[in-house]
Write a protein that binds this DNA or RNA. Structure first.
Lengths: 347, 347
DNA sequence: CTGAAAGCGCTAACAC
DNA sequence: GTGTTAGCGCTTTCAG
């Protein structure tokens, strides 16, 4: 049955005093029960819970925050794009935050520039958060803000310092390295790279991994090509790369760009994977169904968010104890049909 | 006992009293300035703003909410999937909320079932929100919650009633109709439909549009095929549909499913669009680069979120006045290469 | 135009 | 185990 209240501006909601009165205890006792504090008899605890239920009592978080100084919520500064990667990360963050017993406030910054971040952080602080997550920002300069809560930089080094700033990676460099190694293992002499915009730390991190893989085998490092994460930019990059017969393998810093790139390659008459192998980045499952199915690396969004949040919550709740070590993140290469040995190896 | 502003040694954040003292006015005057209330001289206003800036003063939202009863934030119950559609809608909602001067709290419900929604709404209410957006939920039963703030159902009819419940569509039926009409206009005798899970209202809404388009021309309505939004489910549906030579046109309730479906069709030897035309739903730009580029309808996320939020904010801020009418949403068909006239029309 | 007093609903610290 | 007493920092009356 539908139960509606919709009482617009009528009798005020029940307060803890109402619950206390109904049970015949003090407000503090009600408070103890609601906060799961010890030193309440099981009997009283049960009766308080029952009374609260009966009255439809709901804790007033504003009052609680004001009195305790803790808001029980965490704010995230996100990128405001609907791409699979950023969206997955946000979903993972929401889950991790909720599992930690906090609420989540979201502010998007379309650009991810230092000023945008400063503004977003400010607005979060004003709304009242106990900690802030800055998710995969663009970092070119210093962000100048006064922050008095712990801040987690997820997938980027801190853009501002402070005693309560923690960092957690998404393991992008290792992932990029695995992707590049896969291509090298297949027999390619070298691997080209289509990067995301280099102003994004996420893009640079992957470049590092690609470079490291090449360097480890003493391979030639082809010039970097830069896209903007969009499939269109991948397509444009693909047209340029298709003209170069030296190109037999490309590691692309995002699935969408990879799909655009493959489009251009095939349009130019270069077969994938027979002539050119392509590896994407992210792990969007839809690309198992394009032609050819895309080999990619899966980003460990859940693990990264969970690990980062563990550090952040630690910094919030035990500000004086040492920050625990970060966990290792899984590296998962999803091999499909867009990669193969180079033409030379097949005679 | 009166507390003297302790801005010497005390690391506590500055309060409005500190600002007031610095300027030499009362706290109420500071409050007026910060809330953009009238009846403050320009001079005082300016000095207050300067002092606030100088002290690095930041309003305490918990205190404000407690005193005023308004939290200045809106909560959204989202689906917790990283698909292009839901993610885009969330981004659009965030923007609309921010533009309205509210903060955004997010709770995901993995399932979108009535019970999940009830839980999510409860948690939002406890966190303190002035309004709630329920975004594209699964609706099979009634949601039983006590809500005392306005609720906007976005892309679904209300799951619970009440005087302060508003609804805004995303225009899915019209979009579905446009997609179906496009196929019919091309000369197809009828159009098959691969729907999303019918427990989702969003899926049912699109089915309606498809049915309406067929009915308007007196065309035969083929049996409905049901997927689960994933490309994999589209692929499975495609294998079944490929076996039926009658199928020349399919309207698919999501781009990902459409891509999976095309994969299966081609694998079975049916060419797209020569033998079978396919239209997707959502408008993810990456699918301009798959083979064949996907014809689709673009969901007007920004317009839908903006319009819905306008209604919600109205319900919050002017609870007694009538709810303004909803705006018409744009219908945008993106014709690419996955649709063509049926084989029969081409001889 | 501006200010003084009185809480908002809860938790903190300490009593009992 | 439980109650009492003070506020948290702001906005709301209602005076001036």
């Amino acid at each position: 049955m539908t139960r509606v209240a919709g009482r617009g501006g009528s009798p005020s909601a029940p307060r803890s005093a109402d619950v206390a009165q109904l049970v015949g205890v003090s407000r503090k006792t009600v408070s103890r029960v609601l906060n799961n504090e010890p030193y309440v008899s099981d009997d009283v605890r049960r009766r308080v819970l029952e009374a609260a239920e009966e009255l439809g009592y709901r804790l007033n978080n504003a009052a609680r925050a004001l009195a305790s100084g803790r808001n029980r919520s965490i704010g995230v500064v996100a990128l405001g794009t609907a791409g699979y990667g950023t969206a997955s990360l946000l979903v993972a963050i929401e889950k991790a935050v909720r599992d930690s017993g906090y609420g989540l406030r979201v502010v998007n910054t379309l650009g991810g520039e230092p000023d945008d971040i400063a503004r977003a952080v400010d607005s979060l602080l004003e709304q009242g958060v106990d900690g802030i997550i800055v998710s995969e920002p663009v970092i070119e300069g210093e962000v100048s803000v006064r922050v008095d809560v712990p801040v987690l930089f997820l997938g980027a080094p801190p853009a501002f310092g402070g005693p309560r700033v923690v960092t957690a990676g998404v393991g992008a460099d290792l992932l990029a390295r695995a992707a590049t190694d896969h291509l090298l293992d297949l027999g390619h002499q070298t691997v080209h790279h289509l990067a995301g915009p280099l102003r994004w730390y996420a893009a640079r991190d992957r470049v590092e991994g690609w470079r490291a893989a090449l360097a480890a085998r003493g391979r030639h490092q082809p010039p970097l090509v830069e896209g903007d994460w969009s499939a269109d930019s991948g397509y444009r990059a693909g047209r340029a790369l298709a003209a170069d017969p030296e190109v037999t393998a490309v590691f692309v810093s995002g699935d969408d760009m990879a799909v655009g790139l493959i489009h251009a390659l095939r349009e130019a008459g270069r077969r994938v994977p027979e002539d050119v192998s392509v590896v994407g980045f992210d792990g969007n499952p839809v690309f198992a169904h394009v032609t050819p199915p895309l080999t990619t690396v899966r980003q460990p969004f859940d693990a990264a968010a969970g690990d980062g949040l563990r550090l952040l919550v630690h910094a919030i709740e035990k500000p004086d104890s040492e920050i625990p070590p970060a966990n290792d993140l899984p590296v998962e290469l999803v091999v499909r049909a867009s990669t193969a040995p180079p033409p030379s190896a097949r005679g």
